[in-house]
Amino acid sequence: MSDTLPRPEDVAAAKQHPAAQTRTLVSTDYAVIAPDGHVVAPLVGWNHTSGVVLISPSMGSAPRQPRFTQTLVQLTDKSTTTSAAPGVQRFVYVLSGKVRINGQDLTTDGYAWLPPDVPHDLQGVEPGSLLVFEQPYSPLPGTPAPDAVFGQALAQPAEPFMGDQHARLAHLLPDETDARFDFAVNRFTFDPGTPLPFVETHHNEHGLYLQHGQGVYRLGSGPTETWSPITAGDSIWMAAYCPQWFVATGDTPATYLYSKNVNRDPR
């Protein structure tokens, strides 16, 4: 058995191997997680359920690390769960299939926000997939957390973003209109060729999931800047103050779901 290092031509050949290719990248201020790298495993706290933890605090190190988790859940008709970790709020979005939460049935594009420390009964009804956000809840002194929220994304008004009819934003939670919420999830749709109007830089961090279509995301600046092609099924983490910009490409609208922290002192 030889103990010599591989030849340079062997390394060059390995870099071209189809199994070595991925669009996934992880930086200190952002990450793009493509389905080609998903490793499906059982999910902690869920029964008869597997999935992929797309974003979590273990992705980075303080202070530049996610403060939430974003999980792609593979739903079965036997899936069950009763609560998130103590002090953690949970948002469930149905990508496909059917789920029953506290007796209410949710199908594709249905969603629920579930308050912290209140057990809930979630049961899979029809196989499919869920997008689940979880984040520690920051209470307001003397103010109880909101009750559970149930909705249907397509029933929420999609308003032109900054006056652009080709970029439509729907708020799935009250976010800025109700200070009891410290967390928001929005659904953003761009017609082909439509961009964000400028490169955003702000104190909010995001977890994003591209539900439909395709586009290009500019992330970071200087040595960390990247222009990432993304397509349906991709996820992105953006840290606070990470420069970010998007343009939809292709022939059909691009739609993504994204979370952000709201209504609390960012310090």
Results as ranks from 00 to 15, higher is better:
73 V>E: 00
40 V>G: 01
42 P>K: 10
45 G>M: 07
73 V>N: 01
63 P>T: 06
36 D>T: 12
55 I>P: 00
95 L>M: 13
99 V>R: 02
90 R>C: 11
85 A>R: 12
59 M>V: 05
84 A>S: 14
62 A>I: 10
51 G>K: 00
62 A>V: 11
66 P>T: 03
45 G>C: 08
78 K>S: 15
50 S>W: 08
89 Q>V: 07
88 V>K: 03
98 K>E: 15
57 P>Y: 03
64 R>V: 07
88 V>W: 07
46 W>R: 04
49 T>I: 09
59 M>G: 01
53 V>S: 02
38 H>V: 06
66 P>D: 03
90 R>K: 15
43 L>I: 12
52 V>G: 00
60 G>K: 02
35 P>H: 05
76 T>G: 08
65 Q>F: 11
73 V>H: 02
35 P>N: 06
84 A>Y: 02
40 V>K: 08
53 V>W: 01
50 S>V: 12
53 V>N: 00
65 Q>G: 02
39 V>G: 11
43 L>N: 07
80 T>M: 09
67 R>H: 09
76 T>L: 09
69 T>R: 03
57 P>K: 04
83 S>A: 15
84 A>T: 03
94 V>C: 12
61 S>A: 15
55 I>C: 00
57 P>I: 01
98 K>I: 13
95 L>S: 12
35 P>F: 04
97 G>Q: 05
83 S>W: 06
57 P>H: 05
70 Q>L: 12
56 S>H: 02
96 S>G: 14
46 W>N: 02
33 I>V: 12
59 M>Q: 07
97 G>D: 04
88 V>L: 06
62 A>C: 10
43 L>V: 10
63 P>S: 09
90 R>S: 13
58 S>E: 10
86 P>H: 11
41 A>H: 14
47 N>M: 14
99 V>E: 01
90 R>V: 06
52 V>H: 01
93 Y>W: 11
69 T>A: 07
44 V>Y: 13
89 Q>M: 12
60 G>Y: 05
54 L>Y: 00
66 P>K: 01
71 T>R: 04
81 T>L: 06
78 K>P: 06
93 Y>Q: 05
33 I>R: 07
83 S>G: 13
92 V>C: 06
49 T>G: 07
49 T>F: 11
74 Q>L: 14
49 T>C: 14
83 S>V: 10
72 L>S: 00
82 T>N: 15
33 I>M: 09
61 S>G: 11
89 Q>S: 12
48 H>P: 07
81 T>G: 05
59 M>Y: 06
81 T>W: 00
72 L>E: 01
34 A>L: 13
95 L>W: 05
48 H>R: 15
91 F>E: 01
90 R>P: 02
84 A>K: 01
48 H>E: 14
79 S>C: 09
75 L>Q: 06
52 V>E: 03
41 A>N: 11
37 G>H: 14
52 V>S: 00
48 H>W: 14
84 A>C: 09
40 V>N: 05
38 H>D: 10
83 S>L: 11
97 G>C: 12
83 S>M: 13
77 D>E: 14
49 T>A: 10
96 S>F: 08
73 V>T: 03
43 L>E: 07
97 G>K: 04
97 G>I: 03
99 V>Y: 03
84 A>Q: 04
89 Q>Y: 06
88 V>Q: 06
91 F>R: 01
95 L>Q: 11
97 G>L: 08
92 V>L: 06
37 G>N: 15
74 Q>A: 11
